[in-house]
Computed example of a mutant assay.
Amino acid sequence: MPAARLVVAGRASADGYPVRMTVTLDPADDRASFSAAVAEMPISSPLQGWGYGEARKELGQEPLRYFIRRGGEVVGAVQLLRKRLVPGVSTLYAPRGPALTDLDLLPEVAQAIRGVARRTDHYLTIEPPHPIFAGHSASQDDLEEEQSRIPARHGPFRRARTEQPEHTILIDTTPDLDTLFAGLHKMARRNVRTAERMGVEAGRDESFEDFWEIFTATNERSSLGAFPRAYYEALRREADQDGGEAYLVLSRHEGRALAGGFYIALGDTTCYLYGGSVRDDRPPQEGEKRKDAKAPDAFYWASIKDAHEHGYSTLDLWGIPRLLDESKHSFGVYKMKLKFGADRYWFPAYDLSLSPLSPALRRALRLRRSYLNYRSFGTTDDVL
């Protein structure tokens, strides 16, 4: 596919004429060089890594990768997923992307993407991996005020609904471990110490079967959906290459895995994408009731330590409710994560229309999503 080329007016030169700049999208065919470019960008995410796109093939999505160049210099990289909805109708999606040197490139990138889009591509959704600070507190004083800090548009891109969780907790793992532990909520510190006294072992683990048992049990308990198992297996295999990592962290008590998560990492960031916990229903070794070993707390602390020890400066806990209200289906997950980090951030999404039919298509997809939410949770709101 030829490179998409755009010539735009830049700042004025000394003689009053505009400086001409060219942005190109050049197809990326080598996974190692593409993933290296994504990892090196200051605005980036592991979801833009080659392996994430390869795993999405299991869901029927087609990954498209491009280097973003200006004057021969690589100033970004973008992985687009083409989703075919019905014959002749598709959309494009950049999961937590594109990876860029500067957000100011987005208007130019938009025009370049128009040059590579097919007639069947009706709109593009991007999720720039540039976190916007929301707050450092357990409560949310004013959701509208927090949202007002988010730009309504970037050039032709307009604010839209995200596919990945929009609201999350980010943990800076660069301090030493003593400082990190001291920064936990006092209940988390107490529970981690209890887990250690009870012999809980938590850390990286190779047992996909044990993770899968925890993950599926959590989804069933919370009425959450999941992709086919083949997708998660492909993600673990494909994202664990070319400088990136895909790994499991499990928390075990007396050999049984009771909590765990699936992570992908690239560059300086690691993301907790999937996971959960199960109750220990084994009979107690003594007494009438088995004591709570606090395995989930041990799991989160092990995840923070692991990120620190492997040089990932940011741990993304991946998803808390938009509205921090106890009535929300996922509020319990938020309370657990809050014990380990309180810095909340927004990752907003933006849409770019590629067809006159895109507004109608987006409305139809929003209605479908609302219907599925209502059928599963009794509300049209998203879980997060």
Rank of each mutant, 00 (worst) to 15 (best):
L248M: 09
S277G: 05
E286Q: 13
V109Q: 04
D351W: 09
V109N: 07
R229W: 01
A3G: 00
V23S: 10
E326M: 10
R190T: 15
T125G: 09
E245D: 12
T125E: 12
Y66H: 11
G225D: 11
D29E: 12
L105H: 05
A360R: 15
H122V: 06
G267C: 00
P165R: 03
W212D: 00
L323K: 15
D280R: 00
T168H: 06
L372S: 11
T379N: 01
R5S: 07
G260D: 04
A12Y: 14
F377Q: 01
A182M: 08
A295N: 01
T379I: 08
C271T: 14
Q147E: 13
E220N: 13
T174G: 09
F347Q: 10
A12E: 13
E201S: 14
G72R: 01
F340W: 00
H310F: 11
H167K: 11
T269I: 14
R279Q: 11
A3H: 05
R375M: 11
R190D: 15
L85A: 08
R96C: 06
L100Q: 02
R149D: 05
D121F: 04
L361R: 03
G243Q: 06
L25G: 03
Y312F: 08
Y345E: 05
A152G: 14
R161I: 14
L25Q: 07
G88H: 04
A4K: 05
P18A: 12
D381T: 07
E62N: 12
G260F: 06
G135Q: 08
R362N: 08
L92T: 03
G341D: 00
D382P: 12
S277D: 03
A257K: 00
E288Y: 15
V75E: 00
L365F: 12
Y52I: 07
G135K: 11
D351G: 05
F133L: 02
M1F: 10
Y350E: 08
Q285W: 13
M336H: 13
Y231Q: 05
G155N: 07
R114L: 04
G49C: 10
K305Y: 03
L354V: 02
E144I: 11
A28D: 06
G10C: 01
Q48N: 05
A14T: 13
L258P: 04
G225T: 12
P131M: 01
A302I: 04
G51P: 02
H130Q: 15
S355Q: 02
R252G: 00
E220I: 12
A182F: 09
P359K: 03
A112L: 09
E245H: 07
E58I: 12
Q164R: 03
R279M: 11
G71K: 00
K289C: 14
T174Y: 06
A364F: 10
L266Q: 02
R366K: 15
K294V: 09
K289H: 15
D205F: 10
E326N: 08
L180S: 01
K289Y: 15
R114D: 05
V200M: 01
Q111D: 13
D297A: 15
A234N: 06
V249I: 14
